[in-house]
Amino acid sequence: MSFVIGAPCVDVMDKSCIEECPVDCIYEGSRMLYIHPTECIDCGACEPVCPVEAIRPMQRLAEEWKPFQEASRELFARVGSPGGSTKVTTLEDPHLVTEFEKED
């Protein structure tokens, strides 16, 4: 269970979702935001507030989101479970995201 942030967030990072999340499980990278897959309680509060519709539930993930899901998993395998994004500084984006070329 959890929600996944995809490509539309890259270089946008509106952060409305961070304000909305009741468990503070949305973490900031340099180019995009990431939802912690085990800290997320699946409440769905973030999904409708994203102005670029970057947030999707894991159960209904479009193909384009899947590499981002994988990248996010790798990121949090490295970072662990800090228990809230306010407890850590900006996370280092995974390779997929640092190399990602945004289409305009």
Binding site: P22, V23, I41, A45, G84
Partner: peptide, 13 residues
């Protein structure tokens, strides 16, 4: 405003 109601959702800790 004599009564301000903040219904901004919840946080859990």
């Amino acid at each position: 405003c004599t009564l301000l109601v903040a219904a901004l959702g919840f946080t859990m800790q």
